[in-house]
Write a protein that binds this DNA or RNA. Structure first.
Length: 134
DNA sequence: CTCGTGATTGTTTCA
DNA sequence: TGAAACAATCACGAG
């Protein structure tokens, strides 16, 4: 048996949110020492691996931001919102978080796909550093 | 005018 | 397995 009678319905381990991928197979990347200066005007999408997609918490923050700003238009920094977000996030029920997890999970699938394609491109073209370099 | 900082949690990556 | 870095957001300061 699995002593599944644990009254604590651990909300975790549900939804289809894969905990984390150990390592799909990361070939040795020849990190050519990219300049730490990231271009603001143009997102370094092709410079390095695709940017990490926002997490469920961030999606929640997007929505929370609007609500928080409407109730607290005097707030100027996001620090307060961030704190409020974290606090509420902890009080939120898993069911509500699942809503964001679901979105984040989908985005991650896309991200993985992008990485796979990016990786493939690397093998094909060695490096796709693209023309971000001036 | 332009960039970095600050705060939050979740996911990613490397050794 | 564990730790560190990075993800977005907005206003403000410094040079």
């Amino acid at each position: 048996m699995k002593t599944r009678s644990q009254t604590a319905p651990k909300p975790l381990k549900t939804v289809r949110l894969p905990p984390v991928k150990p390592r799909p197979k990361q070939p040795p990347q020849p990190q050519p020492q990219p300049p730490p200066s990231r271009k603001k005007g143009q997102p370094l999408v092709d410079r390095r691996r695709p940017k990490k997609p926002p997490t469920a918490f961030f999606y929640f923050m997007e929505d929370f931001r609007k609500t928080y700003k409407e109730e607290n238009p005097s707030v100027k920094s996001m620090q307060e919102v961030g704190k409020a977000c974290g606090e509420k996030w902890n009080t939120m029920t898993f069911e509500e978080r699942v809503k964001y997890y679901d979105i984040a999970t989908e985005k991650r699938a896309e991200y993985e796909k992008a990485v796979a394609e990016f990786d493939k491109k690397k093998e094909s073209g060695e490096l796709s550093e693209e023309s971000d370099y001036d």
